[in-house]
């Protein structure tokens, strides 16, 4: 199938793109990597009147690290770049480890971090990983700029805090505290397919080996990425024994998530997967934190 006609702009600067977005507002749609948007347009499920292509805006492609500061990633940075960039490997190993789970190499060559975060697909890995890494998102409009925490960015199915004239331009990832481990686990029918359930976790230990901070975010179990809040509370201040990690996984699966059934999995199977994958994720994060 073919997309419906649209007015096409490919600005060379962010200012120009923001001006176009201010001008066209709701009618305008931003085109990043296009690996979700263009299929949707091919099906004519989306028929934007105006497309603002960001692929020529060089200032949106970057990865920058500061000593002890957050890692800054331009919204148009390709997923393939994140997979290979040594700065990502050094400062955000969880983000790097996530990349092979995202579709296939051909998709990651085009797909971008900002596009995936803003698309807000509940089955996508990056929104959950953004929650697990306490990401801060920089949103720009023609005259304003604001930072929004990833946990405040997601508002439901394919819905974010972005206003019609706003664009996600940068992602900042705070550096991980010492003695922090991480993990991403997911179950998909075929490597690279959308996960039936996925889990991203980090665990930070103090010098006595107690958990001082935990993050736990799941995908494909709700209308957006879901934080396992009760499980996180259970872990805080405690020694992460196998029994505690198992209890946190059970809490995640039974209390923190409210999955729905679809052609791929029943509710009971999703809860089962969530429990198994959460326990695996927490165990791996704990092992990494101890090193």
């Amino acid at each position: 199938m073919k997309p419906a006609p649209f007015l096409y702009f490919a600005p060379n600067s962010l200012d120009e793109a923001l001006l176009l977005l201010a001008q066209y507002g709701d009618e305008g749609k931003v085109l990043a990597g296009g690996q979700s948007l263009i299929p949707t347009m091919n099906f004519r499920l989306a028929q934007p009147a105006v497309l603002i292509d960001l692929n020529l805006i060089a200032e949106l492609f970057y990865v920058r690290a500061q000593a002890d500061g957050p890692l800054h990633i331009g919204a148009m940075t390709r997923q393939r770049t994140l997979e290979r960039d040594p700065l990502i490997a050094a400062h955000a190993p969880l983000l790097q480890a996530t990349m092979p789970h995202i579709a296939h190499p051909q998709i990651r060559n085009r797909g971008t971090i900002g596009g995936s975060l803003a698309h807000a697909d509940p089955a996508a890995e990056l929104p959950a990983v953004a929650l697990a890494l306490n990401a801060q998102l920089r949103l720009r409009s023609q005259h304003n700029e604001r930072w929004v925490a990833a946990r405040d960015f997601y508002r439901g199915l394919f819905t974010t805090a972005l206003a019609a004239d706003e664009m996600l331009v940068e992602i900042a990832l705070p550096s991980l505290p010492p003695r922090t481990g991480w993990s991403i686990q997911e179950m998909a029918r075929r490597h690279g397919d959308y996960a039936i359930v996925g889990v991203a976790a980090t665990l930070t230990l103090d010098e006595q080996g107690r958990c001082t901070q935990a993050t736990l975010a799941l995908l494909s179990v709700g209308e957006g990425p879901v934080q396992a809040q009760q499980a996180i509370k259970l872990l805080q201040g405690e020694l992460p024994t196998p029994a505690l990690l198992a209890a946190a996984a059970a809490t995640t699966a039974q209390i923190d998530i409210d999955p729905t059934a679809d052609i791929h999995a029943s509710v009971a199977f999703r809860r089962h997967l969530a429990q198994v994958l959460t326990r695996k994720a927490l165990t791996e994060a704990f092992e990494r934190a101890k090193r």
Binding site: Y8, A10, G34, Q35, I38, P39, Q106, N109, R110
Partner: peptide, 19 residues
């Protein structure tokens, strides 16, 4: 529909020709 763009594999059915 996979082709190479600048030596990298991409799917030509989910890119616009103008790009």
């Amino acid at each position: 529909c996979t082709i190479l763009m600048d030596d990298q594999a991409v799917r030509s059915c989910i890119m616009f020709a103008v790009q």
